[in-house]
Write a protein that binds this DNA or RNA. Structure first.
Lengths: 254, 254
DNA sequence: TGACATAACTGGTTATAACCAGTAGCGACC
DNA sequence: GGTCGCTACTGGTTATAACCAGTTATGTCA
């Protein structure tokens, strides 16, 4: 029951494999910022000395972290902490802010509606809630240089993130996933996305300042956490002419 | 110069690491069907005896194949060949046939154009070819119950797949990636995709039997092999109202 | 015949040891 | 001063050895 200091140590009595314990220790140090981005990790042999395990064990731990993309190895130099790359499903949702800044434009966000109320039973079902259960709903408009290009809607189980509606959603870089991770410890791990294109409705034309016959890209997404519990349902309607979406798909076979 | 039999062996003089050689040997046996799906691979210790390498080397090879999803380990039993699951980028391109059949509709394919000629320099550059180099080009239309819903264009380096144009591209399940894998040993491993939506051109409206103001979903893709060499550039124009695209995104953080 | 103990496997984990190739700093030599 | 080469690092590869836990077939005993 001693307070866990920043640096834990290996418990040899545990049934947890040593390499997995070491991996967890290193990942905690990375996540907590004790080892910042672009910093070199201690060398393999230094970790051997520090934690009293063999080099094979250290390498198993390090390579597992490499596999998850948090660090990368540079032969002859060391292991370096890489930028925290968001998972694939975050690319779709975050790409707005990211690619906007890459183009030197100023992203913005405007909350249109935030409620907790019963909603479309199909969405409640996707969240594994009763059809008439209250659901947290966010509707936002995302802008570039003040120009609206995306209408985004999100639905979540209210119990998952109490107080979420009280946050200031006008901040331009506010990320729903970031808030879920940091405030509520909810980590979306996988999901499915449905793509579509259709003609914009009159309301959407008005919101996005489009001329009447206009095409919009639609993205519908359901995200799940590591235990396959639904996290949120998300719908994005995007003027993709002014803002193409780039979806990096990572490795194919893996 | 002896003919390579089905079973290659380890070349200890090579600069290629032993575990990578062994991985290649095993993958060839899996791909060639010498070790069928759901069959047990030789045990680690059997491979040690067979190829005269240490168990560490065998395990490195096996775990690399596990990582690529071709086999999976069952502690206490062995390594078993899994079904060849297509990677994420194949989902986008194959989802046409797959989801068509899930809906009980009959998918079809029609080759509109197949040439080898210089093309758009931007595409040549994406394939890392000189701007005026001849490029293999395929244009196909994909149909549901005879009804056209997708226009698909592909560009490849001709040297990558000689004779590709001579294949019968009218077969409804013909997959470009499948041919590349089985005939030419080319394995796309990762890629990037750009999504868009726009109004269909008059020509597209005619090809896809759309009424004039119509929205189409566009998917532009570049696929690379394990050595980061470009495999192909692909553009898909899709009537997503009649055929929504489902994109499974797999794990997020990993 | 049935249940149970055992033996012979399987992959999983860990340790020790050695050599290689690439990197970078430092000092000597031209 | 600039170059060269040494040296001390880095991760990458490979070998040998031992034990564990889970699976499966075998054989024995009731």
């Amino acid at each position: 029951m001693q307070p866990q200091s920043t640096k834990s140590s290996i418990d040899r009595a545990s049934h947890e494999p040593l390499h997995r314990q070491l991996k967890q220790i290193l990942q905690n140090q990375i996540d907590s910022g004790a080892i910042p981005v672009n910093t070199k990790l201690p060398s393999e042999r230094a970790l051997v000395a520090e934690y009293g395990v063999s080099r094979i064990t250290v390498r198993q731990a390090l390579h597992a972290i490499v596999q998850e993309g948090q660090v990368q190895s540079q032969p002859g130099k060391g292991f370096y902490v890489t930028e925290q790359k968001p998972g694939p499903e975050f690319h779709l949702l975050k790409s707005f802010t990211t690619s906007a800044m890459e183009r030197g434009r100023v992203p913005g966000s405007r909350l249109i509606l935030g409620t907790i109320a019963p909603t479309d039973p199909k969405i409640a079902k996707s969240l594994q809630l009763p059809a008439d259960a209250p659901v947290l709903y966010l509707q936002r408009i995302r802008t570039l240089d003040g120009d609206p290009v995306v209408v985004q809607e999100d639905w979540l189980a209210p119990a998952l993130a109490p107080g979420l509606l009280d946050l200031d959603w006008s901040e331009e870089n506010k990320s729903l996933y970031h808030e879920l991770r940091t405030r509520y410890g909810v980590y979306p791990q996988h999901g499915s996305t449905t793509l579509g294109a259709r003609l914009a409705t009159d309301a959407e034309c008005a919101l996005l300042h489009l001329e009447d016959p206009a095409a919009v890209l639609t993205l519908s997404q359901i995200a799940y956490d590591a235990d396959d519990r639904p996290v949120n349902v998300s719908k994005i309607i995007q003027d993709s002419v002014r803002h193409p979406t780039i979806l990096y798909q990572g490795n194919g076979a893996k």
